[in-house]
Design a binder for these strands. Structure first.
Length: 240
DNA sequence: GCATTAACACGTA
DNA sequence: TACGTGTTAATGC
């Protein structure tokens, strides 16, 4: 199962982005037309199969990565200690800029939880935009800022022992409209996958979801969760 | 007590 | 058919 292949799906079977895919990349729309056209040509897209790694601890990055569709997770597993999932990475997310900026090796793994479509902006293009595009810099700065809040919230989640609250906080994080604009109001995630992210059994996640549904914050759908009251969900999260 | 695993029926893609 | 959901029973800390 763990093949020794050192390349990601983007390295081995990349294609150009379709117009529909380009339209869903929010930061692309903020660029000046000349930059936008050039970057649209440079962007690479590939399908990642369940379990495939997009980032591997110790390897150096060659792309800034985005989720077009599907679901990824960031974890620490590979080496020693208990497997710890840091976060789920839903559609619309762009990540890995910290590692690119520092010219370091990855300190985490990212792998597909299910069949996913991922996009990659080559490292040279990423740095060229940083050097020349103010709109791009604004986007990256805002993203870094929003994600700082996410990581602080994630630390709180770890300290919580109330399973219902843990699920609520994880959902609130995944429905973040700035970091994950591709999610919208329907997050496609199974209760099994949510359990893996939160660290609970599927049965307990099911119970927590029904509690949240009874309070009118979400609606459980087949293979996903719809948020009905994002403000309420976030309030519930800050309540404790 | 509370969460987990195992097992099952049932519905959906 | 394969997968996701809802539920119950037995087990463990």
């Amino acid at each position: 199962m763990a093949e020794a292949a050192a390349v990601t799906p983007l390295h081995r079977r990349a294609r150009h982005a379709t117009p529909a895919e380009l339209a869903d990349i929010v930061w692309l729309q903020t660029l000046e037309p000349a930059d936008r056209d050039r970057v649209a040509e440079e962007l690479q897209v590939a399908e990642a199969h369940p379990g495939e790694l997009l980032c591997r601890i110790g390897r150096t990055p060659s792309y800034w990565l985005g989720v077009v569709s599907g679901l990824l997770k960031m974890n620490n597993d590979s080496s020693v200690g208990a497997p710890v999932t840091f976060t789920g990475i839903p559609p619309g997310a762009w990540f890995g800029e910290g590692t690119l900026l520092k010219h370091e090796a990855y300190r985490y793994n990212v792998q597909a939880l299910r069949k996913s479509t991922v996009a990659g902006l080559p490292m040279a293009s990423f740095h060229r935009l940083l050097d020349n595009s103010i709109p791009f810099n604004r986007f990256v700065m805002r993203q870094l800022n929003e994600r700082l809040g996410q990581f602080i919230a994630a630390r709180e989640i770890d300290r919580l022992n109330d399973p219902d609250l843990r699920v609520a906080r994880s959902l609130a994080a995944l429905f973040h409209p700035v970091l994950y604009p591709g999610v919208g109001s329907l997050l496609r995630i199974t209760q099994q996958e949510l359990g893996m992210l939160v660290g609970l059994s599927r049965q307990r996640v099911n119970e927590a979801l029904h509690t949240l549904q009874r309070s009118g914050l979400i609606r459980i759908e087949y293979g996903g969760v719809r948020v009905l009251d994002l403000d309420g969900l976030q309030r519930q999260v800050f309540h404790s």
